[in-house]
Amino acid sequence: MAPLLQSSQPWVEKYRPKQVKDVAHQDEVVRVLTNTLETTNCPHMLFYGPPGTGKTTTALAIAHQLFGPELYKSRVLELNASDDRGINVVRTKIKDFAAVAVAVGSSHRQGGYPCPPYKIIILDEADSMTEDAQNALRRTMETYSKVTRFFFICNYISRIIEPLASRCAKFRFKPLSEDIMSSRILHISKEEGLNLDAEALSALSSISQGDLRRAITYLQSAARLFGSSISCKDLISVSGVIPQEVVEKLLIACKSGNFDLANKEVNNIVAEGYPVSQMLSQILEVIVEADDISDEQKARICKKLAEADKCLVDGADEYLQLLDVASNTMRALCNMPQEFPYEG
């Protein structure tokens, strides 16, 4: 196997914190886990929160710190959504792994690692597991609780069935604040020899909305494309965010009350290849913050935005949905009646 080029390693992996105490901004979790490291006692855990806040990082870090590189392979099972995780896997793979007892006498510290006498099963992206598979886990968790600890990681806790959630200690991961994000990004850009001005830095924090992984990925993409000095504009072009002028132009067309003008704008946006779902969320941002729009108008617009978003998820055509949104926005802004006059 040819050696992996150092530079081709994603920075997200390169700068992933190796120790629990390095995980930024999640004080509660860090405190509990540091405690675990000392007492080597730990409950089943459920980490939930938005993407890019350090859930997987924390789980991997604690597993590494507990067992060290030698025992890691035999003690930790990592499963995520790309592995098949139907009910069969729960019945066979997880059960088999859990059923193997930990060798007696191995509870002593080895090579400076605590090495507690249990195994860890990390189920990443657990919210994409089927309900059946989750149900099959319930009893397994209890039967083998002497020798195994489960770490569930998910974005939406509501998709984890209650019986599983109640068996775990739950930890919510908060979105990162802007300061912490900036300091991490500055650290990385210093290590990589990048030149990032203050404007670009704040743009990056606002684009990524508390998702550190996204921020780092954008930074790396921009660095690859535009070299070592990165401006605010480069970051926006890499991130796929739609330039504010485009959004403004559509809204101005809507305010004018001229349907054909709005239709032309919509055509233009689709031809430029801007993702419509992104467009919807940016329209929402502008509408919610606007001062010259009444609450009722805002409500009408937002309702349609939500419907259109759902339709897009179902796979509806982007042009038609955006046109519908634009026409509805126009009717709201120009105070045209909400009901259609000729609907028979």
Partner: peptide, 13 residues
């Protein structure tokens, strides 16, 4: 136009 484009979007969905 508003009405017709709404229904087009509706039926396409």
């Amino acid at each position: 136009k508003h009405e017709v484009c709404h229904w087009a979007a509706y039926y396409e969905h």
